[in-house]
Design a protein around this nucleic acid. Structure first.
Lengths: 247, 247
DNA sequence: GGAATGTCGATTGTCGACAATTTCCTTGAC
DNA sequence: GTCAAGGAAATTGTCGACAATCGACATTCC
């Protein structure tokens, strides 16, 4: 599956100065389809195309200077990421989000991440723990530097992604990636989400502590509480948004 | 998302003799892509194309009498169902299955279905329960009639699908459909799976009983035990298969 | 002999054109 | 004025052709 988001606001532990083995950094072997998909995804997540809006293949192809074929394939790719929706003979539409759908999404995320973190702790988190700590500091950096919300959301989601990645069962990561984009879409729509981003970053500490302590139950409780809080907050905000736009 | 399997071996509660509302059964408004996808999926699940084998777009297009475009789109669709795998500039390949992947799959299914059945019981299963009972009788029928294995597997999977469907959170169903095909692929590969299909059908009874009793914990335990048993059985069988083909 | 390099056939990647379908606006009747 | 039928415009669906890329084999050079 395609990894949509651009790796900003993620902690990268690799040595940035000199590559030891090869003298050249491998140039991206992405096809046209992937590049189109990335551009489209970025436009959607940045809110430049509104949810529910139709995606005209011809228009996009014209704007990007390619033919319709790669655009169609890119759209199909984005469909499996939950970013766009396809209707036969009608074309592609930006996935529309509702508070009910968001609530379902968060409920599902809780199920996934509870299981993922339990497995992570059970199988030993030696490799993942430093990554999580690194991403936490990235969360603080983004918050304190006053970066824009897209950045904050991405940093937050990447933290949770690391948990799924470290679970040891790749299935958790696959499914997380699929639903992560939809969550981000919802968060972006709300616009200004966290009153205090620094305080928001802090709420990740108990999760790391529990993992470090090797306490499975505590870790599950921590993630449960963390996502549960976000769930009520986000859905509440989104319902406000819905009421305002359609009373 | 595309529903791949043809609805055989599923219990249909609607009146089979005369359709009440319309005098005509609605002719399928599926596009060419969906039909190609169904044909492909069927060929893969029936084992006519071996896992790991390349899918030549031109050959498929020629055989089906269509151009390559719908074949490509169909393959992309099947990719998100986990039936085929795509490699850039290499094309599509039938998803290859390993015992390790199967084990991961089952572990994940346990997570999903535990949550789904808990939600089902918690929110009331009045509508789902008769469907489950109907599908159970379908399981018995298929077993006692000595239907082929594909039929048995589909009947079994559909039972579990109903649980996800009845959970009330559509996300469970979406994800289940995605991973169900891969599971089926693995089961088909094993070939002869259940020594006693009737006895196998019986193991679904405790699940229904727990749901009917409204006992969430019992239901979760029942589904846990049921899938867990299948997991060890299937993975064991599959490992045998692996050892035989590559010692 | 062995590793690197060049060549070839086959397959995928992309394109522009045409057919089929949907949508929307016009037109007409009541 | 409302509603239905019809048709034009725009959009998607499908196609065949050509370019780009890959893997395998033959070739060359050490």
């Amino acid at each position: 599956m395609l990894s949509i988001w651009t790796p900003t606001a993620v902690f990268d532990p690799s040595n940035p100065t000199a590559s030891k083995k090869s003298r050249f950094q491998p140039l991206s072997r992405d096809g046209l389809v992937d590049r189109v998909a990335n551009l489209l995804a970025e436009a959607i997540m940045a809110g430049r195309i509104r949810p529910g809006a139709p995606l005209s293949e011809s228009a996009i192809a014209r704007d990007m200077g390619v033919s319709r074929a790669p655009v169609r394939e890119a759209a199909r790719l984005l469909e499996s990421s939950g970013l766009v929706e396809y209707r036969t003979n009608r074309g592609f539409f930006v996935q529309s989000v509702s508070s009910a759908a968001l609530d379902n999404l968060y409920e599902f995320r809780i199920v996934i991440e509870r299981a993922a973190i339990a497995r992570l702790v059970a199988t030993g988190a030696e490799e993942t723990l430093p990554l999580l700590r690194g991403q936490l500091s990235e969360l603080y950096r983004v918050a304190d530097a006053g970066e824009d919300m897209v950045c904050q959301v991405e940093a937050d989601m990447h933290f949770h992604r690391l948990i799924c990645q470290g679970s040891g069962n790749p299935r958790f990561l696959t499914v997380f990636d699929q639903i992560a984009n939809e969550t981000k879409l919802g968060l972006i729509l709300i616009g200004r989400l966290y009153d205090d981003a620094h305080r928001m970053a802090e709420t990740h500490e108990p999760i790391i502590d529990a993992i470090a302590a090797g306490d499975t139950d505590a870790a599950v409780d921590a993630i449960d509480y963390h996502i549960g809080t976000a769930r009520t907050l986000v859905c509440q905000q989104f319902r406000l948004l819905e009421d305002k736009s359609a009373p």
